[in-house]
Design a protein around this nucleic acid. Structure first.
Length: 956
DNA sequence: TTGCTCACG
DNA sequence: GACGTACGTGAGCAAA
């Protein structure tokens, strides 16, 4: 603990700009994570080293008598009230830095130095106030910082020290940098402005000019006064430094300059929360310092601290063991076995508050919710589990309705939901506590709704990390990313299965009926495993070069897609049931016809029975078997037979298409309408496809019919609500465009750059026919080939697709490769890349791992085609994801109400007020077409076609 | 649970 | 010369 010590001429006060230091250290020092769990601690380590050095190295000469670390208390200060622009564009702190803020405060205290902060003021203001107080008492002051904003405080008594460059900054250094004495620095800054902090300044005036002007006019007011008393004049400059443009700007932006001056001037009259006399330096206490350093696993510092200060103090466990091993070792999973007996059930509010306090100290927490269903928009919160370290996990039952220690009303003992959420909400929304979940999108929506229902306001967890997403970013294609798969893979541990606590089949119960004891073991384990996975996987992102993809594309998708799921889309129930009736009637007709032709009744939906009738009883020609030996009765087989003139397969085909539409869409979709919102809320799986595409389920809204007349009627049931329109915006030919770009194929690039019909162009090149008046059949062939290319073409596949002999298909491919040699090169390159690395890459660095690329036989062929297709499909996925991530902010900035509802791989669906339709289309097109910027410039344009209409059918 | 079939990009 | 064969999904049904 610091001691009380009066100040006099012999005192030396050291004030550490701790907040400034943290940011600088974070970026300047190599990233460092705690070995046991991967907690990022680089800035904390740097801070500890600096403190230790300052306190030790100055001993004897220039020793500090008073010492304090000064922090920013909050991001909002009185300056924000002066000017809304101030620091407004500042990005949020990096995720890896966020958990370190509270740790650095603890570090300061552990070293026995006061950690000072004041709400509504920046650290700089407190430093200014303390420096002034010290100076008045005749003491010397050293400010530990390199921040130019503090240079205004420099006097003959006050200097600055940049510990990272080990450089003292005195009067002369300030003169060098600003060209004026320290007491005029703010005047120069007021004119020059500061783009980093969004201090406006005066346009056209930089540091150099500002210094000249201030030196010439003495101070800012003198300059502004002169400028306002003389009108800007092109011919007769009132002063040699006042060029016309400069003068005009000074004239026009005088107010900005004055506000800027207030913004950059530190408030030396800031009320100080602790008297400076309380900053008296004392020797750090080992019993406080070492446990902290130990907890951080800073072995080198711990050892040095003990050598310098300790002298005989008992070494601690970790410091005593392998000396010299530091926390910069590769992060390994905690060796501690998963032990469900360590988990606790939290019932008392004060216990939960204790967990919140610990979460704040640790900075990272594993979070998982339990609900009574699988639909995150409809499910009710049943409990929350938290984890702060290996086996250090708890479960908070909130909505259990049966079993357990029964209360009088039949419910088990548990915390009041409202009270619990009131305690949890600040932690979940605390920007300095990182929430780690597995598929956290689900939990976000559960918390959102629970907040709305119970507290009357949503709970919006932030910041969040998602272990499922991290795993998919690292190892797409190698394995699944569900918690059970990951736990087994990385920890060789099978978590308690849901069916073990809830049962299965008809006897399955919802989670609210599970006993609290069982629930604790199951739920706390999930949070525990999640946090362990995070500790293991998160550091690998940067180690393996995948951090950018994760941070800029994958992670930001979580809140965006969560919002889309909450929004849902309106579907007309009446339209669906009318179609159901219509389809049922016509199916009955087909059925009767089929029975008649078969001469008996059978199950129209049974491929087995159909096979028997077709090829057994009717003895139709050309029957083929599937790989399991059953008769193939798929659409292509039936179509072949129908083409030969047989009526029976025609009836089957007619029945099948209607049956599909009815069972999968018109019947099922109505059941999916949420009674509360009246809309259908799909679930988007962020790791659904290995290529980076999303998938959609419960219900799948990415496969709503469009290709047939009948199918489109279903699409017509997806409509905008009163006063709104649906907007469908889709990328035109995005994968072919990417092929042109990635494969660097000139003729394709030219075609896209000149906005040609790409399939007609292909046909023209291949078959030597003019584009004008082309036979549609020829164009169709070329189209099939173009698609075939994207899929890793084979003569067999193309032959089947086009219904032509294999020899002919083979000729086409030959002709294609002769005309577009670049494509063959691209395909060979992708195969070679995949063979060498085991994966292929998309335009934005996503990796898709290939199994079997170095194997033999069909497996290898499969992997090769995948290697050709995945970079194209995956790059398209990257691009639309980038557009989606940018979209909400872009809409808001334009003041548009539109909500993004659905994504269908190359298409985005929005709902917007009718009056804003045109503006929205314009913006959406722009964001989608420029989605690769500023990271990448494609050599072909991206074209987006967008339309607004009442229904999805009309809009597409 | 598996395989077949078929809806989408 | 034979092997399979266009890439990526999800859902409903039958059959085991």
């Amino acid at each position: 603990m610091p001691v009380t010590r009066e100040l006099n001429e012999d005192s030396h006060v050291m004030l550490v700009d701790a907040s400034g230091y943290i940011f600088r250290a974070f970026h300047a020092l190599p990233p460092l994570t705690r070995k046991s769990d991967g907690l990022p601690v680089g800035a904390v380590s740097g801070f500890c080293n600096m403190l230790f050095k300052l306190l030790e190295d100055t001993k004897g000469k220039d020793e500090a008598t008073h010492f304090a670390c000064i922090f920013d208390a909050s991001s909002k200060t009185f300056r924000n009230d002066l000017d809304a622009r101030y620091k407004a564009q500042r990005p949020p702190a990096p995720e890896d830095l966020v958990p370190q803020f509270p740790l650095v405060r603890r570090a300061a205290i552990a070293f026995g130095t006061p950690a000072i902060e004041l709400e509504n003021y920046e650290a700089d203001d407190l430093i200014a106030a303390y420096a002034r107080i010290a100076e008045e008492k005749g003491a010397r002051v050293t400010i530990i910082s390199s921040d130019k904003d503090l240079m205004q405080l420099v006097t003959d008594k006050v200097s600055m020290l940049d510990t990272m460059k080990d450089r003292h900054l005195s009067f002369d250094a300030v003169m060098d940098k600003f060209g004026v004495a320290p007491d005029r620095v703010t005047h120069v800054q007021a004119l020059a402005g500061d783009s980093v902090d969004n201090v406006p300044g005066v346009p056209g005036i930089g540091l150099k000019t500002a210094a000249q002007l201030i030196n010439a006019f003495g101070d800012l007011e003198g300059l502004l006064k002169f400028s306002s008393e003389h009108a800007p004049d092109k011919k007769n400059k009132p002063h040699e430094l006042l060029t016309f443009k400069r003068h005009e700007n000074l004239y026009q932006y005088a107010d900005d300059a004055r506000i800027s001056h207030k913004l950059v001037t530190l408030d030396v009259h800031t009320p100080v929360p602790v008297a400076i006399e309380e900053f008296g330096v004392c020797e750090p206490k080992l019993e406080e310092l070492v446990p902290f350093l130990d907890e951080m696993e800073f072995r080198t510092i711990t050892r040095r601290v003990q050598e310098k200060i300790g002298n005989g103090a008992a070494p601690t466990a970790s410091a005593a063991s392998e000396g010299g091993v530091d926390a910069s070792m590769p992060v390994a999973a905690s060796a501690e076995a998963i032990d469900a007996s360590k988990y606790v059930t939290v019932i008392a509010p004060e216990d939960l508050r204790e967990w919140m306090a610990r979460a704040s100290a640790v900075g990272v927490i594993g979070v998982d919710t339990e609900t009574d269903g699988l639909d995150s928009v409809a499910a009710n919160l049943v409990g929350v589990s938290l984890a702060l370290g290996p086996n250090d996990a708890c479960y908070i039952p909130l909505g259990h309705t049966g079993d357990g220690d029964l209360l009088g009303d039949g419910r088990p003992e548990q915390m009041d939901m409202k009270l619990a959420l009131e305690i949890l909400k600040p932690m979940l929304e605390d920007p300095s506590i990182l929430k780690v979940g597995q598929n956290f999108k689900y939990d976000i929506n559960v918390f959102y709704r629970a907040g709305m229902e119970v507290l009357g306001a949503p709970i919006l967890p932030s910041p969040v990390d998602d272990t499922m997403l991290i795993s998919a970013t690292l190892e797409a294609g190698l394995h699944g990313h569900g918690m059970d798969a990951l736990a087994e893979l990385h920890f060789n541990h099978k978590p308690i299965a849901f069916k073990d606590v809830a049962g299965t089949g008809k006897k399955q119960i919802t989670f609210d009926k599970v006993s609290v004891g069982e629930a604790t073991k199951y739920a706390a384990e999930d949070a525990d495993v999640t946090l362990r996975l995070w500790a293991l996987l998160k550091p690998r992102l940067s180690a393996e070069g995948m951090a950018t993809l994760y941070e800029t594309i994958e992670r930001p998708m979580v809140p965006v897609v969560a919002q889309m799921e909450r929004a849902g889309i309106f579907v007309e129930r009446e339209t669906l049931s009318r179609l159901s009736g219509d389809f049922a009637q016509r199916m009955a007709q087909y059925e009767a016809e089929a029975f008649e032709l078969a001469g008996r009744e059978f199950n129209m939906g049974s491929p087995k029975q159909i096979g028997e009738i077709l090829f057994g009883e009717m003895e139709l020609p050309g029957g083929k078997k599937t790989k399991t030996g059953a008769w193939a009765t798929g659409a292509d087989a039936l179509e072949d037979l129908a083409a030969e003139g047989y009526e029976f397969p025609k009836a089957l085909l007619g029945w099948r298409s209607l049956s599909k539409l009815k069972s999968t869409y018109t019947d099922a979709l109505g059941e999916c309408i949420n009674p509360q919102t009246g809309r259908v809320h799909t679930s988007f799986n962020l790791v659904g496809a290995q290529t980076g595409r999303l998938s959609s389920s419960d219900p799948n809204l990415q496969n709503i019919p469009i290709r047939t007349e009948e199918g489109r009627k279903i699409r017509a049931a997806f409509v905008a609500q009163e006063g709104n329109v649906l907007i469908a915006a889709d990328y035109s030919q995005i994968e072919l465009r990417l092929l042109a770009h990635i494969g660097n194929i000139d003729s394709l690039k030219d075609a896209f750059n000149n906005d040609l019909d790409i399939h007609a162009m292909t046909a023209s090149e291949m078959f030597g026919v003019p584009i004008e008046g082309m036979d549609p059949m020829i164009r169709r062939k070329a189209k099939a080939i173009n698609f075939g290319i994207i899929y890793g073409i084979s003569a067999f596949g193309l032959a089947r697709q086009l219904g032509i002999p294999r020899g002919e298909a083979s000729e086409y491919i030959k002709a294609y490769n002769a005309k577009f040699p670049g494509i063959l090169k691209y395909m060979d390159e992708m195969k070679a890349f995949a063979r060498e690395k085991g994966y292929v890459e998309t335009a934005f660095g996503r990796r898709i791992w290939m199994k079997g690329i170095n194997g033999k036989g069909p497996e290898r062929g499969f992997a090769e085609r995948q290697a050709i297709n995945a970079p194209l499909q995956g790059s398209a996925a990257d691009i639309i994801k980038r557009a989606m991530v940018k979209m909400p902010a872009a809409l808001e900035k334009s003041g548009l109400q539109a909500k993004m509802l659905l994504q269908v791989h190359d298409e985005l669906i929005f709902e917007a007020p009718k009056a804003e339709a045109e503006k929205t289309i314009k913006l959406v097109k722009k964001i989608m077409e420029t989605a690769t910027f500023p990271v990448m410039d494609l050599s072909v344009p991206l074209l987006v076609e967008a339309e607004a209409a009442h229904s999805w059918n009309e809009a597409h």
